Simulated scan of single mutants.
Amino acid sequence: MVLTRRDIDPSESPLAYYGSELRRLREAAGFKQQRLGDIIYCTGSLIGMVENGRRIPTRDFSERIDAALGTDGHFSRLVGLVLRSVLPTWFRAYAEMEARATFISTFQAQVVYGLLQTEAYAKALLSVEFPDRADDIAAARIERQRILGRDEPPALMVVLDEALLHRNVGGREVMRNQLSHLLSFADRPWVQIQVMPFSSGEHSAMTGSFNLLRFDREPDLFYRESYDSGHMTANSQLIKQRSVGYARLQADALSPRESALLIARVMEERYGDQPALA
């Protein structure tokens, strides 16, 4: 099935511009939707939905389009704008600053920090509130993680509450892969992951998750989010207090090595292969 052409205004949104460019360059290359779909191993209807602004393109889709049409990375560059536009409006300002930060410190009380989530874990989280948009928002979240693959990535300091290791998000396989993903960062020199164990009792972040961003030439930022909004501030007194609090968190948490051992143990004991019931 190939979708009927729908005229869209390319200035309407990044997605509309992407779709109009895909249609323009596909037609210039002399391809029908189905033919282009065959070349990049997808359906012609998917090509049509992207052109009509009804489907969010992925980075993989964009890279294959560039290869098929010989567009020299045009769609691979555009897709970043498209995926950022999918993020909740109130979150976009933080995502922009996160991408520019040189040092990120975060404490997470309930879920794995977005930059460290697997796609399956992100989809499972998002499907609770956004069942119709979980795939698209998860793709945008994974796009944020590209900053960790830069030649000079930001330093990322993470403290995770032990509770989130035990919270079964998406099922055993999803959680096992997520915890394995956390362990894969052990050899990354710019990433440090620590776990705040239950045995630590009360600590300096009992009021909830927060992030601290530092920059080379801009003021530090403090960020915290609630159900449907985010609060970001450069208030120096608050940042001083939270920075001291974060240092205390790191001191009270398990060391990176001890944290990795705990993550591995939870992964095997809670999410490992289970014997079949008799």
Rank of each mutant, 00 (worst) to 15 (best):
A139L: 10
Q145H: 04
D161H: 07
I142R: 11
A140Q: 03
V128G: 02
I193C: 14
F185D: 14
R141S: 05
R133F: 15
G149S: 11
H166W: 13
A134D: 05
L179I: 01
D151T: 10
G170H: 07
F185K: 15
I147S: 11
G171Y: 13
L164Y: 01
V128P: 01
V158S: 01
I142G: 02
E152D: 14
I142E: 06
Q178E: 10
G170Y: 11
G171R: 10
R176S: 13
L148S: 03
G149N: 11
V159T: 00
R150D: 11
I142V: 14
I142W: 02
L160Y: 05
H181I: 01
I147M: 05
I137Y: 12
M157H: 09
D136M: 00
D161L: 07
G171W: 15
P131C: 04
L148V: 06
G170M: 08
F130Q: 11
E129N: 15
A134H: 05
A134L: 02
R141I: 02
W190Y: 12
P154C: 06
M175T: 10
R188Q: 10
L126E: 02
D151H: 10
R150N: 13
F130R: 13
L126K: 03
V174W: 07
I193H: 10
R144V: 12
I137D: 01
V169Q: 14
E152T: 12
V128T: 09
Q145F: 04
D132R: 10
R172L: 12
F130A: 12
E152Y: 11
A138C: 03
L156Q: 04
R141K: 07
D132T: 08
Q145R: 10
L182F: 10
R141D: 04
V169M: 15
R141Q: 06
Q192V: 15
L126H: 05
E129L: 13
L148M: 03
A186D: 15
L126Y: 06
D161P: 05
P131Y: 13
Q145T: 14
